[in-house]
Amino acid sequence: MAKNVQMKDVDIYYGKFHAVQGVNLSVPPRAVTAFIGPSGCGKSTVLRTINRMHEVIPGARVEGRVELDGEDIYRPGVDPVEVRRAVGMVFQRPNPFPTMSIRDNVVAGLKLQRVNDKAQLNEVTERSLRAANLWNEVKDRLGKPGGSLSGGQQQRLCIARAIAVQPDVLLMDEPCSALDPISTLAIEDLIGKLKQDYTIVIVTHNMQQAARVSDRTGFFNLLAVDKPGRLVELDDTEKIFSNPTEKATEDYISGRFG
C-alpha cells in the first residue's frame, strides 16, 4: 500500500491542443501533495494522468513516463482498469451512484468486481465509512439512497467508496469546492487521517487549504496565454508558502497574480 508516484518528462494533449508540458515530479507515499495554480493551467489534467482517467476523453493522450513505485503505467500492455484499482479518485462534485443505496455505493467497487461475500461486504462498508468519518451519521440508514445525503456527506461517501477498494494512491480533484466550510473542515480532517495509510494528491484552488492539509505543494502555471501549462516548482509546503524559489510562485501565493 501507499506507493510513490514519479512523472518523467510528461506531456499531455487534448487532440492537437498541448495542455501540459514537460512535467517532472515526485510524490512521496503516506503524505499529502497539493497542486495549486490558476484555472486552466493543467493541475487537474496532470492529476488525471496518474490513474489514466485522462484518456477517457476522446483524442486525449499522454507522452512521457508516469511511474507507480517505479512501474510505468503508460507502457504498452498496461491495463488502465488495473491502474485505476491501484489509484482511486474523488471528484469535484460528489457523484454517488443514484440507483444505489449508501451501502451499495460504498461497496460498489467490490461488488461490481464480483465480490459477493456478505460478511466481507458488511465489514468493508463499516471500515470504509468509519475511515471516512461518516459511519455514525449513516449507520442507521445504510439502505437509503446515496442521493439522500447532504453534499458534504455525499462527498465523504465518495471518499469511502474510493478507499473501499484499498487503493495505493488517492487522487482528489478539488474535493471541497462544492462544499460549505463545515463540510470542508470535515473533509480536511479526514485527509489528515487518511495520509497515514495512503499517498494523497489533491488539487485545490484554496491556498489556505493547501497550506493546512499538505506536506508538499506544487505550483502550476501557464507559460503564456494559449501556451501549455507547466509545473513551476514542487517543494515542502512550508517552503512554498514562506520562501519559494520562483518569483511566479511568490506572486501567486501573495495574491499579486491570478
Binding site: 482517467m53 477517457v56 482498469v81 488495473e82 485505476r84 457523484n95 461490481l112 477498494v165
Partner: peptide, 18 residues
C-alpha cells in the same frame, strides 16, 4: 452524466461492467 462513468472507472471497474 460522464461523472458517473468516471466515478466507476476510478474504482477500477471494467468498462463493460460500468
Amino acid at each position: 452524466p460522464d461523472s458517473l462513468r468516471e466515478g466507476s472507472y476510478a474504482l477500477g471497474i471494467q468498462k463493460w461492467v460500468t
